[in-house]
């Protein structure tokens, strides 16, 4: 468990310095654990609904990562963000859930199970972006293009693509929290 704290915080620190690969690895490690938490607590949502919640939590981790105080341990921060978003997501879906915080502590420290959900498609978030943002998001996420390649295709500077991407993700976060329709 201390290993996980050390490993994950090192990855997130690298990510916050701008290392995209470390960030992808960090999120890749966090996701199965999140999925375990969401699956255990939100059976009524069904697999697709659960995966939507997992994605909402990931986006929240992303948009709020600067609120982690690097001099403090990472896992408590991660518990808090996860718990808040999971409760919020379940509440908005009309179910009330009891989520003792200990569950998160244990789940975050337990080994992740291999998961079959990783390949599942959930299209809720992109579907509500405007066409251009959705295009950029799809190009980067589904087709794995770099921001430079997307820029070349759309005749935008790479910087402009980055800004557009950043805004699109923020918009997805707003959609996920239910303040935008």
């Amino acid at each position: 468990m201390t290993n996980r704290e050390a490993e994950w915080s090192a990855l997130l620190i690298a990510a916050m310095e701008g290392d995209g690969r470390a960030y992808a690895r960090f999120l890749g490690l966090v996701t199965p654990v999140l999925r375990g938490i969401v699956r255990a607590r939100g059976r009524v949502l069904g697999p697709e609904g659960q995966e939507d919640v997992v994605q909402e939590v990931l986006i929240a981790i992303h948009t709020k990562r600067h609120t982690w105080d690097r001099s403090a341990p990472l896992l408590p921060w991660l518990h808090a963000v996860t718990r808040h978003k999971v409760v919020d997501a379940f509440r908005r879906r009309g179910g009330s859930v009891h989520l003792p915080i200990e569950d998160f502590a244990e789940a975050l420290e337990a080994e992740a199970e291999p998961d079959a959900m990783a390949a599942r498609d959930s299209a809720v978030l992109i579907g509500r972006l405007d066409a251009r943002s959705a295009d950029i998001v799809r190009s980067v996420s589904l087709h794995g293009l770099s921001t430079a390649e997307v820029g070349a295709r759309l005749e935008m500077s790479e910087g402009a693509v980055r800004v557009a991407l950043h805004r699109a993700i923020r918009r997805m976060a707003d959609i996920a929290k239910g303040t935008e329709k």
């Binding site: 995209g20 960030y23 959900m117 599942r120 498609d121 980067v140 980055r162």
Partner: peptide
């Protein structure tokens, strides 16, 4: 969007953020 694709997307937006002060 698949979750792995979302992770790729978020990783592409890994620009350094000003810390909370």
């Amino acid at each position: 969007m698949k979750t792995d694709d979302l992770i790729g997307l978020l990783a592409a937006d890994a620009a350094p953020q000003a810390p909370l002060r």
